[in-house]
């Protein structure tokens, strides 16, 4: 695990220095991993395309061409990926869908990260009865069917896309909390924490300045696995018709629409599915790469 050895609060600058070198080490290892680097490039390209989507296609994402409904790829009219059931350009819609899907993935993951890390660190650090109660709450939430939870949240907050992110994040934090709690327990007996405690530093400060930075490794790895998870969940919600509101779209919505016409209009399924799969692959390879890079045991 990545924690600094004997550093104390008084020696904070040194600790940072040492920490940086460890992270640097990890970075070097990560960049040596070809799959991870390729994945980062792929993700970067998709993100840039999504960001500059309007510049990449002559078609607005919500423009309807009545005479080109559900047409296969047509280069003359610049419909490189064909058109959808409403006569809108698939290429531009996939890029706009990327915005939503990536935003959903990242935002929900951030929410789950903030809740899960704080929750897990507090439970693990404080320990005792508080830990017991907090983990029992996690157990209860684990035992609720995930889908029921999400559907209820969607049904209640369905009007707002940001609430969808929050709702998804609010159910993805449980595993994160468990991981962080486990890590916290394993480091809280370490000398540098004891030293900080002996130095009279408040619990709150210890958790945020010492505990959390030292459990970030596994957290980052888990994060790269949560993003694809969230994107897939979003696509499932879209399949149930609980996704983003039109004319906005997401990969999930596009794939759900495409799945219904996979035989007569395969382009409506294949292109968004390729983007989704590429993204999920990329996140997973980056996750694997990060794990290898951050865990010196495993080379």
């Amino acid at each position: 695990m990545i924690h600094t050895t004997a550093a104390s609060d008084a020696l904070a600058p040194m600790e940072e220095l040492e920490g940086r070198s460890l992270w640097q080490d990890a970075r070097i290892r990560l960049f040596r991993n070809k799959a991870a680097v390729a994945s980062m490039v792929v993700l970067g390209v998709i993100a840039v395309m999504a960001l500059f989507a309007p510049l990449l296609s002559p078609h607005p994402f919500d423009e309807i061409y009545w005479d080109r409904i559900q047409q296969p790829p047509d280069y003359a009219n610049a419909h490189w990926f064909g058109t959808d059931g409403n006569g809108r350009d698939m290429f531009i819609r996939i890029l706009y869908g990327a915005r939503v899907s990536l935003a959903v993935g990242l935002l929900a993951t951030t929410v789950s990260l903030v809740i899960g890390v704080t929750y897990g660190a507090v439970a693990g650090f404080v320990g005792g009865r508080t830990d017991n109660v907090m983990m029992r709450i996690v157990d209860v939430m684990y035992s609720l069917p995930f889908m029921f939870f999400v559907i209820m949240l969607m049904v209640v907050f369905g009007r707002n896309i940001f609430l969808i992110f929050v709702a998804l994040g609010a159910v993805e934090w449980l595993t994160m909390a468990r991981i962080v709690r486990g890590q916290t327990i394993s480091i809280k007996r370490k000398e540098f924490i004891e030293a900080a405690r002996a130095g009279g530093v408040s619990n709150f400060k210890i958790i945020f300045r010492h505990v959390i930075p030292n459990v970030l490794g596994p957290v980052i790895v888990y994060m790269t696995l949560t993003v694809p998870q969230v994107i897939l969940t979003e696509s499932f919600l879209s399949f149930l018709g609980l996704g983003v509101q039109e004319p906005l779209t997401s990969w999930g919505v596009l794939i759900a629409e495409g799945a219904k016409v996979m035989e007569p209009a395969p382009w409506m399924l294949i292109y968004p599915a390729i983007f989704l799969a590429l993204t999920l692959f990329a996140f997973n390879f980056i996750g694997d790469g990060l794990r290898d890079a951050l865990d010196p045991k495993d080379r």
């Binding site: 919500d62 309807i64 059931g85 409403n86 039109e246 004319p247």
Partner: peptide, 15 residues
Amino acid sequence: NTSENHKRIAVAVQS
């Protein structure tokens, strides 16, 4: 309400 056809019509009417 949720349905592929309702969606397509609403999108058309919106435009």
